[in-house]
Design a protein around this nucleic acid. Structure first.
Lengths: 218, 218
DNA sequence: ACCTGAACACCGTTCAAGT
DNA sequence: ACCTGAACACCGTTCAAGT
């Protein structure tokens, strides 16, 4: 049975779940698809290109449904939550997307969508572009950390690591770190996303802001 | 001449500048230090541990001077700028720090400092911790991208990549991407950092905020 | 204690040859 | 066109043996 590009990407995502990003090798992927490792280079010019295709497939998923016509703040919240769900759906999903070198069609569409939302909110395209990236850094950073923590050995929390090296630390830091490790990641994610949204709101010129509020009200 | 741990870290940072993170191998580092690759395992149990030590050294640099007693917004701006300077000082510096597995003393001190600033601004320790991480995601994401762009082949801009795949894109997106690639990264960095700061300010309870304003005024 | 030399168990990638 | 088999040029890591 001959392989198609899509088969390779699907197999790679399956292997990703089983082995993690560090365990994803061309030889193992070949074996999982019943083929020699080298044969994969008929379908992708490099492992990097395959990883780009995997990232684009993950991004595709959270673009499937159109965004509802709600105020821009809610649209960003929805986009953020969908991105999080899509990235958490595969082991190391966030790391795969963060490592994207050449963006695919879905990655570009996602960027386009983010910029359009921020422009409709009242930002100039330039600032919308800058903040779309900033938003992406937050989303990816947060989820990379979530997925890393999920795979730590049981006793290896921040407390035991701090104890090993002797660094004095404020009681506030202790409380902060305890909260980071004990609070539902979804809540932390939403909180930070909201801070971001309020920061964006602070950059919208008042004239535009009025228009936005009316949009939200109808 | 026998090697010390610090010599290995210094040599590794030098080799990082010459070869980049992907070109940094234990064998090459050994050769640069006049030693076999395997000999490095007398000083570090793994390459990962060496990379952690490199990351901590980078972090150490921007903690050298104490923060001036200015309002919390300015303290965060100063911290962000110092972090950016320190990370840009070495090739792939941001990727090295982002890949940190076990934080060292400086990394912990930097976290402690961030949390303290945010608490002094009026946040509860838990939220201060969450936002300290969010802040770090932004800083690292931005600088990783800066350092990646700096090494792209000349003709390989977003425009030529988009042309290769046929994805329709809004005129706003075009303007946004042009702005991202043509604007001074320092300006973009400061803008996003400020958005973040204003978002944080929006989360501070009014009672606390008054105190903060007075602090800033004196 | 620190380093050498050599090995082990892998990698990504290429390519003549087969079907 | 797609795949095999085998190679090339590397990796991180380990370890007996030297000094």
């Amino acid at each position: 049975m001959l392989l198609r590009k899509a088969d390779v990407v699907d197999g790679a995502l399956k292997l990703l779940d089983a082995e993690g990003l560090d365990g994803l090798t061309m030889r193992k992927l070949g074996a999982a698809l019943g083929v020699q490792g080298g044969a994969l280079y008929r379908h992708f010019p490099s492992k990097e290109a395959l990883l780009d295709a995997m990232a684009d497939k993950l991004t595709e998923e959270f673009l499937a449904d159109p965004l509802p016509d709600v105020p821009w703040r809610d649209q960003i919240r929805i986009l953020g939550d969908r991105a999080r769900t899509a990235l958490l759906a595969h082991r190391d999903g966030a790391r795969v997307v963060a490592g994207t070198f050449a963006p695919g069609p879905s990655t570009i569409t996602a960027g386009d969508l983010s910029v359009k939302i921020l422009c409709r909110a009242g930002l100039a395209p330039a600032q919308a572009g800058w903040l779309a990236f900033a938003l992406m850094y937050y989303v990816l950073g947060h989820i990379i950390e979530e997925q890393a923590e999920a795979r730590l050995p049981a006793g290896d929390d921040w407390r035991s690591r701090n104890a090993r090296i002797e660094t004095e630390v404020s009681p506030q830091y202790v409380e902060a770190m305890d909260s980071v490790t004990s609070t539902d990641p979804a809540e932390r994610f939403a909180y930070g996303l909201n801070v971001f949204i309020e920061g964006i709101a602070s950059q919208i010129p008042p004239a535009q802001q009025r228009r936005t509020v009316r949009r939200a009200a109808r």
